[in-house]
Design a binder for these strands. Structure first.
Lengths: 168, 168
DNA sequence: TATTGTTATACTCTATAACTATA
DNA sequence: TATAGTTATAGAGTATAACAATA
């Protein structure tokens, strides 16, 4: 690596464009490594404490929020594709954390919802999820957390406009 | 995390703490889906235009910046583990984009550097990388891009303190 | 014909273990 | 003993194709 050990302010004109060719200064790289660090931390904790993976947690989180949903709805809400949702639901159903009720309005699908045990696990995982969020983002001021939400939302929309997700 | 006023139809708390139980409001989730959207866009373009993957591009970017490095140094600079670096280097060497010079100071390793063709490809990919960055982050004001850098850096450090990377 | 769910398949990414050659 | 590189292997994540049941 080159020097510039003090801060990251290389040859950046105030408010101007980033001129660096260094990998470490690319926003997509910074975004990727940060997301991976956060995700692997979360995955490790969910797995070691509850034996669930992130995909399964996402399904539980949505069901805990909306009550019941078809797999198609879960795919929309989690941004996972229908195959990933189906596998996560299978795991959760085998563990007795969700159950399938017939869908009177569409015989092709079922309505999934948390069982009593599922709600119990959900009630345990949710505080852990919030605690991890608070821990990891503790270095940010409240207004920075809100700024991050807004920024990520716009970047996601832009990336998705240019290169749409193709799931389900 | 005092009260849990969960009516099931929580709105987004304006400027305040995260009270929502909705998956879509979790910062780790937003970070993950945004990073994935950006990364898959980039991966698709690098692959279709140059036949290289992100790991290979990262190695080329570092070598283009520092001139030469051992695989161990590349692992440090890219935050990839030594196995991923080794495979990326193998692919690049087989394509004639990098070459290995003996390392006089340590017989166990070699110094990797871009070949003429490697520098040529590098000179083509770098503008593409910057163009993608500009395109994806165009929705942000310059000061928001700088804020994002700062925020990601602090979040990465925090996640890494709590759950250190274990590579090489 | 189109959609929902399901299975099979494959490719990428990541992580670990084991081995070699040097240090 | 420890480190740099290499190979093999396995675990997740992600994507497509094909199929059955239903719309």
């Amino acid at each position: 690596m080159a020097d510039t050990k003090n801060t990251g302010e290389v040859g950046v004109a105030a408010g101007g464009d980033m001129e660096s060719d260094r990998l470490a200064d690319f926003l997509p790289y910074q975004l990727s490594v940060t997301s991976n660090a956060v995700s692997s931390l979360i995955a490790e904790r969910y797995q070691s404490r509850f034996g669930i993976k992130i995909a399964e947690w996402r399904v539980m989180a949505v069901l805990g929020d909306v009550g019941s949903a078809t797999q198609r709805k879960l795919a929309e809400a989690t941004l996972m594709d229908k195959v990933a949702v189906n596998r996560a639901c299978k795991v959760l159903a085998d563990r007795g954390l969700i159950e399938r009720e017939p869908n009177a309005r569409d015989g092709r699908s079922h309505l999934l919802e948390l069982t009593g045990e599922g709600r119990s696990i959900h009630a345990e995982v949710m505080p852990l999820a919030k605690a991890i969020e608070a821990e990891v983002f503790a270095a940010l001021k409240p207004e920075e957390r809100e700024a991050l939400r807004s920024i990520l939302s716009r970047v996601f929309d832009q990336a998705n406009t240019v290169h749409p997700i193709k799931h389900s």
